[in-house]
Design a protein around this nucleic acid. Structure first.
Lengths: 194, 194, 194, 194
DNA sequence: CATGAATGAGTGTTCATTCAT
DNA sequence: TATGAATGAACACTCATTCAT
């Protein structure tokens, strides 16, 4: 499944044959059908395996209760940033399948996965707005799109490379912190009544 | 080529056979190889045809000379927003191929296309920073990633739908204005020294 | 289709691969799917091509009007005997598929073909019975089963061989006449009030 | 083996996979190879198990010594009729494999089985001819082909159904008696010098 | 004795492309 | 310029069988 995830991203689902997969994984071609039933099921299995990768565990969320809305939002964003940046390939896979009409069932699953991620962030934003700490005339949906749109860009290999080149001497962790800080500051500027 | 663009997005490049294309376009299967040489060349032709779609024409840019950096940035963003939102399918196609290792030549072309879009925005941001109107401790790259990341999200069909549902009674143009306003305000908040 | 008919009999439909067919027919493996859509359609095409092989042409039947019922029956039987003995392979193919639950549509077609053959014979028998020339206490269905059952046996390769060995010096035509005479005499003995 | 017999008739030997068999029989896929060595051996085992199903036991035959040749023939035919009608599936299986060139060894076995059935009938016919009770100018082979050809037709599912519909209210046993009577009367008409 | 895992060979079908016309 | 016919290669998948346990 690890091999498949990688190849599906590199060559696309339809562009990857089970012979490619079996050769790369060092297994027999029949094994994919044997274990997963079909190539398509393999893709679905990959997606579902990490389905809950970004869902905040309830205890983590409860621990945030005494934080300000912005701190909370910032925490959650950091959380998702880490999750996405640690699973860049998987995340790209999700988005590659997202617009594909050929596999509507899988599409539904992916939409469900992504939707979950939205909920927590939306809650935090709306709490801030309700408590008068965030501007009220801001559409949370557009904000969330901004967040995930930005994190999405961070999974692009060429931009990863660009960031690395533009920040010579910085470790991947430092770059990652930069990304998180950017997001945090961006939203502070945008949401809060300074 | 229009049919191909549509099908390549709906079903992916490898998921679309030239028989699908020829049937949908009402032409002979041999025509694609005949005119384009190969299916891959067809894809490349599609990409290259619109290659310069987002490049500001020089006269448009010159007309901006007397604008403030932020007005200039805002203009350019509006310009790209329109271009991208009017060519959502094409834009998705670019990003689908962007991570595909199978067609490195095409990948290079796409990177070139996207890079052009960056340049103008980067110039405007840096001008603002140089003239002390924008905060200096902001990384333009991250800002540009934010902009295009957000516009990218706007090409997702499911999010198009979500926006439509969340803004009942609003026309597509009004929603588009909302998107542009969000971008403009987001960057004003983030970049300028209020 | 000739090659397919032969191989389907020799090795069975499922026992014959399209690679067998293409090699034997000297064509490309893709041609069967190309022309017939599928291997199953090929089988169906073979069956349907000869579908009316045994149907008496109306003018032939009209010419029989002045014959006695038994002469008429005898004529028809001779007719079918020739048709079946000239298409032994095809006839075996029909019976091989007749009990196969896997291809119900084809089964229906075959039943229709065989049914047509019954009608004319039944008519002749019943005419004889109505005119008091044939015994009335005989079930036409069992008689027809006897006729086709016997002709069916005649298509067995091993029995063909046995008949040839038991009738040394006789040509295939002479053996065929013997078969027809047997049928004719058998039914005369059985049906007529001597 | 019972399951296999049924499926081999329904779907053909090549059309039945050992997975079909194992699922239907509720056993492990490896069991067939384990017990029978191969799928082909399973088929052979099925055929051989009932190989002697139609062979008159010697004591039964001896009891016939004081019967007339026609009574004897009639007895034997009744005997075979019962055997075949009680094992319609098996009988069909034999005939399906009879023309299959793929498994010559099995073919030989089947020919041997069917041949045994011929011998007793031929003996009875020839005894009648020798004793001047049956017409001498009749070819026993054609008579036997008529008998087994007819009984063969009786194993066709569609004709079973047809007979049932044409004889409403009659039990299967009554229909079976009708079949036997037909055969008996047919041969009396044909063979004896009334 | 029995089986789940595994495999190489083979299945029918579809592929992008070529070519004579 | 345009196309129907044809093809070799590749496709996802299923096959009967083997083998360690």
């Amino acid at each position: 499944m690890e091999v498949a995830e990688r190849l599906f991203i590199q060559k696309g689902f339809d562009g990857t044959s089970i012979r490619d997969l079996s050769k790369e994984a060092g297994i027999n071609v029949a094994m994919i059908s044997y274990y997963f039933g079909s190539k398509e099921n393999l893709l679905q299995a990959i997606v579902e395996q990490k389905a809950n990768y970004g869902l905040l565990k309830s205890q983590e969320y409860n621990a945030m209760l005494d934080l300000t809305p912005f701190e909370k939002l910032s925490c959650i964003m950091d959380y998702y940033a880490d999750k996405i940046l640690n699973n860049q390939g998987y995340h790209q896979l999700l988005h590659k399948e997202l617009n594909n009409d050929q596999r509507p069932e899988l599409r539904g699953i992916i939409l469900g996965i992504l939707e979950k991620n939205w909920v927590e962030i939306r809650k935090a934003i709306q709490e801030g707005q309700d408590r008068g700490l965030f501007k009220k005339d801001i559409d949370p949906t557009l904000v969330i799109m901004t967040i995930f749109g930005f994190l999405n860009q961070c999974t692009r290999k060429d931009l990863n490379e660009k960031l690395r080149l533009e920040n010579p001497g910085k470790s991947m962790n430092e770059i990652r912190d930069k990304i998180k800080n950017h997001l945090s500051r961006l939203l502070k500027d945008h949401l809060t009544n300074y």
